[in-house]
Design a protein around this nucleic acid. Structure first.
Lengths: 193, 193
DNA sequence: TCCTGGTGGTTAGCAGCGCTAGCACTAGCA
DNA sequence: TGCTAGTGCTAGCGCTGCTAACCACCAGGA
């Protein structure tokens, strides 16, 4: 069995190598550069090896996205815990969200633009996704005992995502990012039931 | 000159044929189906004809996007004008925005996901884009004499865009769309200076 | 009326894409 | 030592966006 174990470890390591390389390559040169040929030369294996681990290129992107969601959840959790007063949590979490998106643009892209098959609020929702959402939800919950926390969390998430995407594509005034986050949090706080 | 005029008219007509066909095809089968070969057979010309009118496939998508922005601006204008009381404008405009995005998913995609080169708030911003933004801005302006209308308009736009994108990819509970719009508008109204 | 320049449109082909069939080799077991 | 299972390769298919080179036609002047 030891041999089988070793083989499994090697398989796992190579799988991680593929996703890590894909992510690094995407962050440095954009997802357009992440082709099966380029990726395979980068990991120093031939193309078909990729398909031993993933059914398609899309699945590789999905794996990167999942990794991203786990990291996002962790970043939001850290922001929430590092918050001195509970009232501050929404503000901190919003800032952490923007920060993550800015620092990992390609990964964020994998999470929200390039992977259409990862669904929320469904039976097959992977745990990293629900965990990230739950962190936002917890933060929203502290603001006040609002009637429908879920709805307001979704609205907050949507606003943060919208600010990220529009900002990235040059659709918003580039020197007012902080103002927008502030305005968002302010109007969020103002709407107490 | 009459001959030259006729030629120009024919050129214009063919250009419109290309964008209209691309849009229709995208709405019915998705942008993946809009390849240069498919598009050229659809308009009953050969591939190089496309390149007499557009420099690349991306420019065709951009043309569809511009058309979409013009229509969106018009839809928002109609919603604003059809509003009985000024207080209602934000709500109406938000609903009209969601409506447009739902009715024209592929066009919306061209506007916000597939065309990265159309910038807002810049010197080279095409008029349809600023017009659409201005309609939102006007609606926001009616809510109250807020200090920074621009910032709050951007936040509203971002929230609407986020709700659209996350909703479309199954990232939000599918039977609470109206609730989210309502919550968004409510918190928007609540945050008066 | 014939000739000529320019325009409109075509066919054929390039490089690169995701993906796969099928072969060569090697490690591990009997 | 011979067999087997599994690993990784080469080569190639059908597709993509895009372009070079050519042909047919029409408008305008001699």
């Amino acid at each position: 069995m030891a041999i089988e174990d070793r083989r499994q470890r090697e398989r796992d390591a190579r799988r991680r190598l593929i996703t890590a390389t894909a992510r690094t390559l995407a962050e440095s040169e954009g997802w357009d550069a992440v082709t099966t040929r380029r990726l395979s030369t980068e990991i120093e294996y031939s193309q078909p090896v990729l398909y031993k681990h993933f059914g398609s290129m899309e699945e590789i992107v999905e794996a990167v996205a999942l990794e991203g969601f786990a990291e996002l959840a962790e970043a939001l959790r850290a922001a929430r815990r590092g918050s001195p007063s509970p009232d501050d949590q929404v503000s901190r979490v919003a800032a952490a969200y923007g920060d993550f998106a800015t620092r990992n643009p390609a990964t964020y892209d994998a999470m929200f633009t390039r992977s259409t098959r990862l669904h929320f609020a469904a039976d097959d929702t992977p745990t990293p996704l629900t965990e990230a959402f739950d962190e936002l939800r917890e933060a929203v919950g502290t603001v006040a005992a609002v009637a429908d926390v879920d709805t307001r969390t979704e609205v907050l998430w949507a606003a943060l995502h919208g600010l990220t995407m529009l900002g990235r594509n040059g659709r918003l005034r580039s020197d007012h990012e902080a103002d927008r986050i502030e305005a968002l949090v302010a109007q969020f706080r103002a709407a107490l039931p």
